[in-house]
Amino acid sequence: MNRRTLLASAAILAAAPAFAQDDPVKVGFIYVGPIGDGGWTYEHNEGRLAVEEHFGDQVETVYQESVPEGADAVRAITQMALSGADIIFTTSFGYMDPTIEVAANFPDVVFEHATGYKRAENVSTYSARFYEGRAIQGHIAGAMTESNRIGYIASFPIPEVIRGINSAYIHAKKVNPDVEFSIVWAYTWFDPAKEADAARALIENGADVILQHTDSTAPQAAAQEAGDVITFGQASDMAEYAPEPRVSSIIDNWAPYYIDRVQAVIDGTWESQDVWYGIDQGMVEIGEITDAVPEDVREQALEMKDAIAAGEYHPFTGPINRQDGSEWLAEGETADDGTLLGMDFYVEGLSGEIPN
């Protein structure tokens, strides 16, 4: 997702009023999928529950699930603000413009938009460096595929998703030069039927590893049905499919951020900001790597995780060329955040075009 530009001027600061101890803060959440999706929305809702557990009667939380991106989001966010919410978390990229629109009409409410890049005096943005987890998944996938064909179910052709594809491919290719990626664009974040169909099509085309940037567990179920196909949990652990087909996962841990931002509202210290956290800060976690993964591959994956966390390794380290063969990163050069945040190209070796 073309989330933000880190070269932008410093965000304008806005302080929310402090709340009396007996005046609970109303915390709202807008979700793109159902809270039981087992992936993206599930983990955001786990963050909401963590807020309730941490603050007790200091807060009241409300949420609306399965809100479509676009005009419906404007209505849902507006209604939540009218209901007295003091802080509202809007948790999908397509909520960016609706959040900015509603925030302009409610200057006394503060908003937190997940994965976007537009900010205002009362709007912050936050996201996670999912591409770090994709590198680890790519390493495992490249080492474990027997057909050398890896399927990737992509949601929308936005920079976040493209970054993930590139990161996974680079690291699969490092461990297995013969690997090929087949990418299916689902044009949805959550549609179990469509995700299952995409997984089955990839498997029928020879893929024995399925990666996904969609939210449901349907690809896991399709792989389990097919047999001899491995998968990775997306956004959530999806551990009900372990030890196979799900051999590991990327887990989004939003709870510490949500608690921190609600505390800032309570204290009257909330400020508009932009954060992009990764494995180091714990916003991106790697789920258990099961015994289905060979021991040496597991150790290599965990070493990569530790190196990323320590700042000793960047998943986009040259030499890396663009898809057309032109140089992107020279030997030892690492990608800057500005390029990553606006990524709109495949790296060399990936086939096909990125849809408009």
Rank of each mutant, 00 (worst) to 15 (best):
Pro355Ile: 10
Glu43Ile: 08
Asn321Lys: 07
Glu43Pro: 12
Glu146Met: 03
Val229Ile: 07
Ile77Leu: 00
Asp178Val: 07
Met96Gly: 05
Leu7Glu: 01
Ser9Pro: 13
Ala235Val: 11
Pro256Leu: 05
Glu348Pro: 08
Ile158Trp: 03
Ser216Pro: 13
Glu195Lys: 07
Ser124Trp: 05
His113Ile: 04
Trp189Phe: 08
Asp267Tyr: 00
Ser326Pro: 14
Met1Thr: 13
Gly36Trp: 13
Glu69His: 04
Asp228Met: 02
His139Ser: 15
Leu6Ile: 12
Arg261Phe: 10
Leu329Glu: 08
Ile136His: 06
Thr290His: 14
Ala235Tyr: 15
Ile165Pro: 09
Glu160Gln: 02
Ala14Phe: 01
Thr99Gly: 06
Asp178Gly: 10
Arg261Thr: 14
Phe29Met: 07
Asp280Met: 10
Lys305Cys: 07
Glu65Ala: 03
Leu6Cys: 13
Gln323Leu: 10
Asp228Cys: 00
Val110Ile: 01
Asn2Ile: 02
Ile279His: 12
Glu285Phe: 09
Phe181Ile: 07
Phe19Asn: 01
Val175Gly: 04
Arg246Ala: 15
Ala207Arg: 00
Ala120Phe: 05
Glu69Ile: 03
Phe345Asp: 08
Thr334Leu: 00
Arg129Trp: 05
Asp344His: 12
Asp37Pro: 14
Glu331Thr: 13
Thr214Trp: 06
